[in-house]
Amino acid sequence: MSAKPPLLEVKDLAVSYGSLRAVKGISLEVHEGEIVTLMGANGAGKSSILSALSGLTPFQGTVRFDGQDLRRVPADRIVALGMAHVPEGRGIFGDLTVRENLRLATWIRHDREGIRADTERVLDRFPRLRDRLEQPGGTLSGGEQQMLAVARALMSRAKLLLLDEPSMGLSPVLVREIFGILQEINRQGVTLLLVEQNANMALRIASRGYVLETGQVAFSGASGDLRSDPRVRKAYLGG
């Protein structure tokens, strides 16, 4: 047992939509400084798990984040606790400019100087966004929107980023670029929980992974073990 409790601790999490049980009691842990990946096919329950963690979807079971029980904590308060969710499809507000998208994410903050400094920092990290600052978010390309979504999450000073398929719809070159940036963000102390269908890329940067099937954890382990596991190879890594 490590001395420090996990940053995120999930026990028997279940999510239902009416009579449909999308997540059927999963447990997982994410420790500070880690990159952990959740993999699985469409409909395995990955996005539902993230929605439950960030407070968008009601759930059963327990979720503890940074020592606090998240049951009945509304989504906007969870952001203030230090968890930011980059949603599926990126969730850019199309008729807000890039600058306005970034500014909105600082709702919970009131330190003018800190906000200005953080804006500069994320723009240094994503120089392409600096060129498009006054452009509506809806006019950005898919890759730029993904960068904006990550940049926006960083503006809330999150300790833990939940990322829902950052590789979706992007070219391999862009996927590598985004994953490189994610690794760099992690090196600077931000913990990542990464939902991916692109298991190859996800296992390359994650230290551990969970494989979901029909709302349950089918197996889990260190990335190296998962990569050599024949079941994972067959289902997710193309044999």
Partner: peptide, 17 residues
Amino acid sequence: LAMRAIAWNGRIVPLMG
């Protein structure tokens, strides 16, 4: 900003805090 963001896609606005 928040009002315009809700007009665009209200479901995910809580994720901005």
